[in-house]
Every structure is written in C-alpha cells, then in structure tokens.
Design a protein around this nucleic acid. Sequence first.
DNA 1: GATTCGCAGTAAAATGTTTTACTGGAACGG
DNA 2: CCGTTCCAGTAAAACATTTTACTGCGAATC
Lengths: 344, 344
Amino acid sequence: MAKQRANIRDVAKESGVSLTTVSLIINKNDQRISEPTRQRVLDAIEKLSYTPSRLARGLPNRRANTLAILVPQLQNAFADVYFGELISGIYEEAAARGFRILLEVARRDYIKRREYMQLLEDCSVDGIFFLGATEEHKFLKEFDASDRPLLVVNNHFSQWDLHHVVCDYAAAGRDAADHLIELGHTRIAHISGPNDVVLTTRELTDAFVGRLAEHGVRLSKSMIVGGEFQVETAKLACDELLERDPDLTAIFCANDKMALGAYQSLRAQSKQPGKDVSIIGCDDIPVAALSDPPMTTVRMNFFEVGAESCRQMLKLIETKSMDGRINKRIPVELVRRASTAPIR
Amino acid sequence: MAKQRANIRDVAKESGVSLTTVSLIINKNDQRISEPTRQRVLDAIEKLSYTPSRLARGLPNRRANTLAILVPQLQNAFADVYFGELISGIYEEAAARGFRILLEVARRDYIKRREYMQLLEDCSVDGIFFLGATEEHKFLKEFDASDRPLLVVNNHFSQWDLHHVVCDYAAAGRDAADHLIELGHTRIAHISGPNDVVLTTRELTDAFVGRLAEHGVRLSKSMIVGGEFQVETAKLACDELLERDPDLTAIFCANDKMALGAYQSLRAQSKQPGKDVSIIGCDDIPVAALSDPPMTTVRMNFFEVGAESCRQMLKLIETKSMDGRINKRIPVELVRRASTAPIR
DNA sequence: GATTCGCAGTAAAATGTTTTACTGGAACGG
DNA sequence: CCGTTCCAGTAAAACATTTTACTGCGAATC
C-alpha cells in the first residue's frame, strides 16, 4: 500500500523496460516495439491496473483532449430539443474519438471577461463549438480570420470569417416552395425566424420566396411575419396573417415549433390545419410526427450537424492547417405527412 | 516572438522574483508577500498577458477543478426541462467557484467499460453528479460506502450507501393530500411515477396515501396507476382511472407532464380539469403556469437542487472527510392555481 | 574488411505548476 | 551581546507524461 495509484514509472519497473517504451505502447505509435515486450508491458499495465493521467498527458503537447460546447444564455437552453440533438451529435462523435465535452454558458459577464479565450489559453480545451449564435454575439469578431479553433454550429456569418457547419437552409426553402407549388397553392404565407439577427433563416426565407417567384407566385412582404422561433409568437403571427388574407391556403413556418403555433391559431378560428390550410414546418423535431395532423416538414438532421461539426473540428485540431475555413452544408429532406394537401 | 505563451517562469523573470512568489500570489495565499512585490508581479502578469495552465496546475495536487455530470441515455435527455434545470443549477454554482463541467452520457458500453471510474482515476474530474438514476443502474453499487466522490442528484437509494441531494418528496405527497382534503375531496386517484425503480416516487405515493388515511380518506390500490412520467402514458392511466370510478373528483399526478396528460384525458371525455375534476401536479415546470387551466402543483426547485448538489460536492472534495454521507433534502412548496377547486 | 542500415529500445529534456522546507537578515526582549 | 522570532521570500522536489535524439548491435552491402 505504498502508492495510491500506479504511474508509468511503476509499469516500466514492473515490466523491466524504460518509460519511453511504455509510453510508446500506450500511444500505439509502436511500430518499433517487439511483440514480446509489448505483451509484457500490457500485462504489467493490467496487473497494476494502470491508467495514464489525462492531466499529465496533456501537459507536454498542450492538448487537453477536450472540446467545449458554448451555448447562449437562454431560458432553459439545456431544455431545448434543438440544442439537445446538436449536443448529442457532438458528444457521440467526440466520445468515439476519446474526447471529452465541456459545457459552457455564454452569460454576459462570461463574455465580458473573455472566458472563452481563457479556455483555449489555459489549455483546458482544444476547440470550441458555439451553438445558437446570432449576429448579436459581437465577441465572435475576435475569431474572425483567427487560427483559434472555434466552430459555429448551424449558423453562419457573412461579416466574419469563421468556421461553420450548417443545414442547407436554402435547399429547405426551395423544397418547401416546390412542395406547395406541386400541390397547387398560390395564396401562400410565411412565418419566418428572427431574420434580423440570423443569416440562416434569412436564407430560408429568400430561397422560399425566390423559388415561388420562379414558379410565378409572388409572395408580398406583408405575408411574411417574423415569429422568434416560439410557439406563442407564431400563433400571434398566424392570427395576423389570417386577418390580412382570410383565404390563404398554405403557410410555411421556419421551424416546427412555430408550425404548432400555427395549428393553434387555425383551430382557434375553426379551421383545420392540413385541410383548410396546409402547414409546412421545418426541422422535423420528434413532436412533428406525433402532432395532429402529423406534420409535413423539412427534416434537418441536427444530430448529424453536431456529429459532422465534431468531425470537422477534430480535423482542424489534428492538422492545424489554416488553408481556408470549414464551410460544410448538411443536406435536408422533405418529409411528407398530413399537414399539407392539394388545393381544393 | 520567441515564445507562444508566457509561463510562470517568464513572469518570475520579468518581475525579478522566484516562481514560488508568483505562484503564491496567483493562489492568493499570499499573506507573506509584501504589497510592492505583489504589485510588481501583477504588473508583469498583465504585461505578458499570462494565464496559468489549468493542466499544469492540476498536476501536483491531482485536481482537475472539473466536475462531471453523468446522465442516463434517454430519448433526448438533453432536451428535458428537468435535466435542463438541474444542469443549470449545477453549472451556475460550479462556474462561480471556478470549476468546469464535463458532460457524460451513461450508455450501455460506457457503463460496461466503467468509464465513469476512469474519469476519476485519470484525474479528469474531481467528482461526478449522477442525474436520472434509477434502481436499474446497478453499477452504482461500486460507489456503495466508497470514498469516491459520486453524488446522486434528486433520487436516493436505500440499498446502497451513497451521497444524495433530493427534493422532499414525502413533504410533497403530504402537501398535496392536505390541499385536496382542505378542498373537501374524498374520491381521489393518483397517477404515480415508475414506483418499481425509483424510491423518491414511492415516497411521494406513500406520503400521499398515508396523509389521506390520517384524514380518514382511504385510497384503494386500484386508484393508483403508474405513468412512467410521460404525457402519453399518463393520458392512458387517466382514462383507466375514470373508467374505474367515473365519479372521482381529484387526481394527484407525480409530475406536471403527467398532469398535462390527465388534462387531455379529461377533455377527451368532455370533463373540465379544475372544475369537474381537480388536478394537482408536481414539479412546477414552466408550462404548468402557462397551461389551461393554470396548474396547481407542488414546486420542486430543481435549479436549487442542482446548486445545492454542487455546493455539497465541493465541500466533499475540499474536506475529503468521509464522516457520514451527504443526505440533503430540499424543501418544496404548494403552488395554488386554477386546476384545483373546492368540491361542489 | 569497412561501411551502412535497420532494429529495438533508452536517456534526458521538456511541459508548467504547487508545495515543503529552508534562508538571510532585521527586530526585539532579557 | 546573545538567542529567539518574525519577515519576505527562495530552492528544489514532486507531479506524470511525451518526444527527440541517441545507442549498441547484428545483418546486409560494396
């Protein structure tokens, strides 16, 4: 009971080789170690139930083998399916590669103290994922064209040169437009996201409106209302749209939550979603399939966005190559359910 | 441009003192350092924009200044208000004390490989919070009466001797019973949680039934149905209860989600929750106040449970005193809203 | 027979802290 | 004037690894 915990020196002594040899074996860069020696060392590791210290390991090469997920301070950010799926995707991929995940909340004073930088500078973390970024997060400027490993997940920016991985929102807008056109709709409305601060939802809107125009359907500005991505605001938005055009036949909502708000609004006016008015959502969150009627929507595989973000981040860290920024688009897919129907 | 990053040695050289002095100043155990020296060192730190490396700091005393949150692998565990609030509470308190939070998911193979132990053994983490624990998590036995810093958040176990911080579920059961009695109800039912695997919800049920009995109201076994904490299963449970006793006047649900399920069930049978049948929930999640009718419920401050868990954990780590287990109960509070009414 | 090469492994430096035990000198009481 | 105490700080060990440059040796090559 001399020692609490075996270290690499103990293993070396036990198996009669040098530290270096043990280290090489642990790190699997061991072409040059012969099989018998290798086996002896592995036995010693087993016997002493040795685990290399992550702390000490990170020290020489300044690697923590840890990644941070930074989320904005929202009302229960951790209780949102959207963040939940992104985080799961990142986690899964990171865990598979032996990386740990650190959780960080970008509160006001967190940003003011530049703690995200500390994280990188004190070697706590090898890279940072930023979820839920908007154009109001001015501190991102610090990463503009910098070689600091920060990756924006599911949003992107034109004013700053950053790494990002995003769903193909333009394709989503086009898919939604094509679907409604195919069903014969012409009196169409759109409940958008916060277009003033999020580029992706602007792209969604632009692509949707643009594609409708290509098909000769004009969507006037007044039939586009912003909904802040929440059920309640979307309900109000939908009320407003129905007042402006009581005969509209289809609404494209920038996310599924807002589509549920539209359902509520319609019902309150004794209209049936999917029959009287076609509703198409965006995201395909789990409740979309379970809603009544089951929702037609554009599936955005957020889990995959998270996973791909993580793969890209790891590549970034390994290679340290700064030739160009990461700029990956994840494909989307229209899911036809019962909330859209041919025009009568 | 000789160096990338200043270290403590650079600071020492710059300010003409020894490493030790700098270290003492950084760690604020610096009674013995004179003010002028202190100032000189702080200036040097500023000038070189020096940040101590967390990795190197942890090495000598085997402290990572990091805590892990372990959650079970559930359908979108990260997208649940319950976990969200617990995590927020833990995070807040940890951040205030300079601790980082690591996220870990207890998947099947994660448990099999005992990675939670690795976490402690390789010094990645100074302590582990386990959320969403049930009696099916047999691996907890490993921490039974052990001095490993694992803390069970918002559940507890009688079969294993572990640290825990829990809401006072017994008090919640009593409060709910008292409230219904006060309103004159006698035909009462209960939709319970997964009583087979979670002790806290058994306590809730027992306290509720016990208190009713004290007031002379007998709740038969058949009027208690389990609901697995989900909206859908609770709806079915409620259907069943209404079939068994169409004249029941009140239902106590073991959480708010299930109370919402009960709302649905009642409405489907053209009964008005809060008028025809009083419903009382448990948790006071945000939607409870927003539901229709606003829900009477027992508030469980999960944020506070998380925060207190973290405080206890830090105490555990600091003192390393194993005289007794942590066993803290967080008080609950009845919130009267419109889903309960005096019997007619 | 000298030179080169590859093999299997090692010595030692480097990574950046904390902490314990020490030191030289000044003040101070007897 | 001597011993003690205090002050302000320091030297050096410890923490656990990775990595670079090296070494001895036998085999192949010229």
